[in-house]
Nucleic acid binder design. Structure first.
Lengths: 230, 230
DNA sequence: CAGCGACGTCAACAGTGTTGACATCGCTGT
DNA sequence: ACAGCGATGTCAACACTGTTGACGTCGCTG
């Protein structure tokens, strides 16, 4: 929930006055910082400066930086779930929307996305995202182990790949829709690496976003086939 | 501790004297350090201590730490490729072997695996791995864009997922064959999250290694179907 | 109004990667 | 063989990082 930081008295920036913090204002300012800098990491000191307080004040509200990053990541999860608008019956489109929204969030907030390699945020946003995916595969006609496996495959791919894309793009402007999968054209000696020599040009044309969605489609199709085979 | 002034140029084995470094000895000691500590990061100072030299001596052989980690990661790639023994015609088994070897390397050297989110090491090991995968999908009957897409999907999944698994397991002993996908049993209110409440137990049974290989099989099957559809 | 807990502030610690000055080693050309 | 010179190890230092403990102040509660 991004309830605009309304709980701070002393709205006018009148010199080094003490500012009252709470978890929500730290989270929203943290998101802001991650989006503006576009860097792959944010520091506690940077965040403190932007909050207008001593950096260590953050430790009154979060046990350590890891807990803070988990809260930020969970907020991103919650927003991605909220961006899913398709009818619950259209399970394919719901999964696509969730994936797209996650990738969009992650590329907008690279410093938070890189934390996603640790899967569990133990927050409500993650819980909602899991529920959405489980429900989608259940409506696809799966259940039991097959259902859980497909969910895990989808979650793993979306989080890990989106995090990788976000990190790779950390430097560039975020308005780009997609980026090349390889940062540089790849070329090799045709003698030792004939396939690369032949296909290197095509590989340079690959766009990370297309590849990401291709993986999503692969899991969806796998679910369709598993459901049909019963 | 070597004293500042000279006279300690003992050539005897490994004693605390000036040691002559080269890229290969740094790499092999770096691998050793990453495997022994089992931590998610290794520091330049730690590596220097284990080499018996001043930590900054490493910078005479690598531009910065990123270049060093790239070299270490490329060595892991090379070893994974070397572990593939199946007949070139059996493209499915070759891909499985490469995936298994990569996961094994990554879990043995967590500190190096976490660097794999940046795909390109620009080294010979990576080149060999790419060539192997391209060749496998070509033998599956694919070519052109379809071939490149399947290669990219496989590479993306193997690297990103294996890196995630390695990070998640960083603390525990490395002799375990597999670990649970979730670090803690997941439970939720059946009112708001009925699917999770129903399937949470099954999710706890998921093993990361099985999930990893499941993704590999999904890409293989996708390639089979694409090849058959022509 | 007293008390007491929550909270912001400050200084400090133990780390990290990296750089520049310095000295020494070992190979080169003459 | 010797002067030279580049490659390389050493050391001190810088700019960062996350985190902790002591201190004082604010604001709510009894």
């Amino acid at each position: 929930m991004t309830t605009a930081t309304g709980s701070n008295r002393l709205a006018s920036h009148g010199g080094p006055g003490k500012v009252r913090l709470d978890r929500d204002s730290i989270i929203s300012t943290g998101l802001e910082l991650a989006a503006d800098t576009g860097a792959t990491t944010i520091s506690v000191r940077e965040l403190g400066a932007r909050l207008g307080t001593d950096p260590t004040a953050i430790y009154r509200h979060f046990r350590n930086k890891e807990a803070l990053m988990q809260a930020l990541l969970d907020e991103l999860n919650a927003r991605a779930v909220a961006a899913v608008t398709a009818d619950p019956g259209d399970w394919r489109e719901r999964l696509r929307q969730l994936a797209r929204a996650t990738l969009s969030s992650f590329t907008s907030y690279p410093a938070i996305a890189v934390e996603a390699t640790v899967l569990t945020t133990h927050g409500p946003g993650e819980l909602d995202a899991i529920e959405l995916m489980l429900d989608a595969f259940a409506r696809a006609g799966l259940d039991g182990d097959e259902l859980v496996r497909h969910y895990a495959l989808m979650a793993s791919h979306v989080l890990a790949t989106a995090a990788g894309i976000a990190r790779g793009r950390s430097g560039r402007p975020s308005d780009e829709e997609s980026s090349p999968w390889f940062d540089a054209p790849i070329l090799a000696d045709p003698r030792t690496h004939p396939r690369i020599a032949e296909l290197g040009a095509k590989m340079a044309d690959l766009e990370d976003r297309d590849l990401f969605m291709l993986g999503v489609e692969a899991v969806i199709q796998s679910a369709e086939r598993a459901a049909a085979a019963r």
